[in-house]
Simulated scan of single mutants.
Amino acid sequence: MNGFERRANLIKEKIMQTTLVMMRTTDPKRIRIADISKEASVSQVTIYNYFGSKEALVREVFKNFVEKAIADFEAYMDEEHTFKEKIEHIIFQEGAAYRDFPPNLIQQLLMDDAELAAYIEHMYQEKTIPITMRIIEEGKASGEISEEVSMETVLAFIQLYMNQYEVMLAMAERSGDTDDFFRGMVHMFFYGICGKT
């Protein structure tokens, strides 16, 4: 990569990072190229040259965020952790992701952009589900998941947690100790409300 390409990549990254920060606090529909230009200290022409439109920029920012999250997730799952530690990581990381992109913002982005919705579904089916299935298989092999519980049941249980994550996050914040709240949720995930048998 020559000097020009390096500078171009740095400028593009700065624009994307600025947009990501703005998306965390402002509805993407209200963000204007002029706002991004001012915050990133680059011209509007530069933004259009790199991305073509605000919609394409927002799409690329979100896709980049998802790809990084999946890569980090995969890297953690490839390390030597117990099944319980991996599930705990999933639950805590989901909270971190929702702080960056609340579920209502994600839903809005996907409703407004069919291409982005198709991309997210593809990543879910091709990356997230296979990794999760591998973790469950490892949990079964190590005896951390009962043989009486099917793969489908564990996937459904994880999905139930994820579908209610927005509600759980609000409850955790009201509890005053978010980490302790989620530690309790991890405990219930594994042992229910009666404790470990």
Rank of each mutant, 00 (worst) to 15 (best):
D27C: 05
V45W: 02
D177C: 02
P102R: 09
M185H: 05
T197K: 12
Y119C: 06
L110D: 01
K54G: 14
A172W: 01
Y124N: 08
K196R: 15
F190I: 01
M22D: 00
I87E: 13
F92D: 12
I70D: 06
M185C: 10
S43E: 04
E79Y: 07
I91M: 14
E126R: 03
Q93K: 15
Y48L: 15
H81Y: 12
I135Q: 09
I90A: 11
E55A: 06
V42M: 12
V58T: 09
C194A: 14
F83H: 08
M111Y: 05
F92Y: 14
D35Q: 09
T153C: 05
R30W: 11
V61N: 09
M123W: 09
Y191H: 15
T25Q: 14
E166W: 10
Y48H: 15
R174E: 13
G95Q: 03
T132I: 13
F51R: 14
E60G: 10
V167H: 08
M188L: 11
N49S: 08
A69S: 13
D113M: 06
K140F: 01
K12F: 02
S142I: 03
A97F: 14
L116R: 12
T19E: 07
L169S: 04
A172I: 00
L57F: 04
I36M: 11
M188Y: 09
A8D: 04
E5K: 13
V149G: 06
S41G: 09
I120S: 11
Q44M: 12
V167E: 06
F83D: 01
N9A: 13
S53M: 06
F181C: 04
L109R: 10
F73L: 14
Y50T: 03
E115P: 06
F65N: 13
Q107W: 05
A114F: 06
K86A: 04
P28D: 00
P130M: 07
L20D: 07
V66P: 10
N49T: 11
F73P: 05
P130S: 01
S37K: 14
N64M: 01
A170R: 09
D100C: 10
F62W: 02
S43C: 08
E173P: 00
L109T: 08
V186D: 02
E85P: 04
S37M: 10
Y48P: 06
I91W: 12
R24Y: 06
V66H: 12
E152Q: 11
A97K: 09
E166H: 14
H122G: 01
K14G: 05
L110M: 05
M1G: 15
M123H: 08
N9F: 15
M16W: 13
F182D: 00
